[in-house]
Simulated scan of single mutants.
Amino acid sequence: MKRLLVISDVHGQIDSFHALLEKIDFEPDQDLLFLLGDYVDRGSDPKACVKEVRLLERQGAIILKGNHEEMMEKALTEQTPESIAHWAANGGDETLRSYGVAIKELYRKAAAGESFTISEELKSDLEWISQLNLYAQTDHYLFVHAGINPERSLEEQEEQDLLWIREPFFSGYTGERTVIFGHTPTLNLHKTFDVYFGSNNIIGIDGGAVFGGQLNCLELPSKATWSVR
């Protein structure tokens, strides 16, 4: 292995994703790539991002689930007006549109108590999402979408914390293993979209690309960074 590389929160921005992989000169047979979730929602082509991420997984990348994948999974499996509305409010419309589906129609059916079917293509991607891991670790690093509850051991973490937590993780983590996370745009952590290196052994890499920021990549152990806008 030549390099360990980490990217998070692509959010359907396939062109930026390709540009970043090209900029870092990613070589799947030499580099180990970790992707920390949120491949769908808000961007121009979430379906294409899922396709690319699944390809990268087949080439050896480590793929984790984000809270947006969780919202997508709940909306399409529970089929309740509440779960669909929650997903729609967080970019689900863009995701379904990339699959040729109107989220308003799914909501209408759910509100009327009718079940709905999805295409085989979308069903395949949904099944893939359902089996994604919530974290990965090496001897020195823990990779997770949102962070961890500092009051619980890794084995006792709850899914909602791994996918959604902000505080008390940011200020309360004191572990020896460095936690690499996405989910929270780094602008909210240190007033810039650059990678955030916390003083308490946490590294945030979500550059808020879908909010006008940048898509970041972190190399370990060198801590070199790349970004595209």
Results as ranks from 00 to 15, higher is better:
Lys2Trp: 03
Lys2His: 13
Leu4His: 02
Ser8Glu: 04
His11Lys: 03
Gly12Glu: 06
Leu20Met: 04
Leu21Tyr: 11
Glu22Met: 11
Lys23Glu: 10
Ile24Met: 09
Asp25Asn: 15
Phe26Asp: 01
Glu27Arg: 15
Glu27Cys: 14
Pro28Leu: 12
Leu33Tyr: 02
Phe34Cys: 01
Leu36Ala: 03
Val40Cys: 04
Val40Pro: 00
Asp45Pro: 02
Pro46Val: 02
Lys47Gly: 06
Ala48Pro: 00
Ala48Asp: 00
Val50Gln: 01
Lys51His: 07
Glu52Leu: 12
Leu55Met: 09
Leu55Ile: 01
Glu57Gly: 06
Glu57Phe: 12
Ile62Met: 08
Ile62Leu: 10
Ile63Glu: 06
Lys65Asp: 01
Lys65Phe: 05
Asn67Thr: 00
Glu69Ala: 09
Met71Pro: 00
Glu73Cys: 05
Lys74Gly: 00
Thr77Tyr: 04
Thr80Leu: 03
Ser83Arg: 08
His86Glu: 11
His86Ser: 10
His86Phe: 11
Ala89Val: 07
Asn90Asp: 05
Gly91Pro: 12
Gly92Asp: 09
Gly92Ser: 09
Gly92Met: 03
Leu96Cys: 04
Gly100Phe: 02
Val101Gln: 05
Val101Arg: 03
Ala102Gln: 14
Lys104Asn: 03
Lys104Ile: 00
Glu105Gln: 09
Leu106Ala: 02
Arg108Glu: 08
Lys109Pro: 04
Ala110Ile: 02
Gly113Trp: 01
Ser115Gly: 07
Ser115Trp: 00
Phe116Trp: 06
Thr117Val: 12
Thr117Cys: 04
Thr117Phe: 01
Ile118Cys: 08
Glu120Arg: 06
Leu122Gly: 06
Leu122Thr: 04
Leu122Gln: 11
Ser124Val: 02
Asp125Ser: 08
Ile129Gln: 11
Leu132Val: 12
Leu134His: 10
Tyr135Asp: 02
Ala136Lys: 05
Gln137Val: 13
Gln137Ser: 14
Thr138Asn: 02
Asp139Lys: 12
Asp139Ala: 14
Tyr141Asp: 05
Tyr141Ala: 14
Phe143His: 07
Phe143Gly: 13
Phe143Cys: 11
His145Gln: 07
His145Val: 07
Gly147Gln: 03
Glu151Asp: 15
Arg152Cys: 10
Arg152Thr: 13
Ser153Arg: 15
Leu154Ala: 13
Glu155Pro: 10
Glu155Ile: 08
Gln157Pro: 14
Glu158Thr: 12
Glu158Phe: 15
Glu159Tyr: 08
Asp161Asn: 08
Leu162Thr: 05
Leu162Cys: 00
Leu163Ser: 05
Trp164Gln: 07
Arg166Asn: 10
Glu167Arg: 10
Phe169Ala: 09
Phe169Arg: 05
Phe169Lys: 10
Ser171Tyr: 02
Tyr173Glu: 02
Thr174Tyr: 10
Glu176His: 12
Arg177Gln: 12
Thr184Pro: 11
Thr186Ala: 09
Asn188Cys: 09
His190Arg: 06
His190Val: 02
Thr192Asn: 14
Thr192His: 09
Val195Gly: 04
Phe197Gly: 14
Gly198Trp: 02
Ser199Pro: 08
Ser199Asn: 12
Asn200Cys: 10
Asn201Met: 12
Ile202Arg: 06
Ile202Asn: 06
Ile203Asp: 03
Ile203Trp: 07
Ile205Val: 09
Asp206Trp: 03
Ala209Lys: 15
Gly212Asn: 09
Gln214Arg: 15
Gln214Thr: 00
Leu215Arg: 11
Glu219Asn: 10
Glu219Val: 04
Leu220Pro: 05
Pro221Lys: 13
Pro221Asp: 09
Ser222Phe: 12
Thr225Glu: 04
Trp226Phe: 14
Trp226Lys: 06
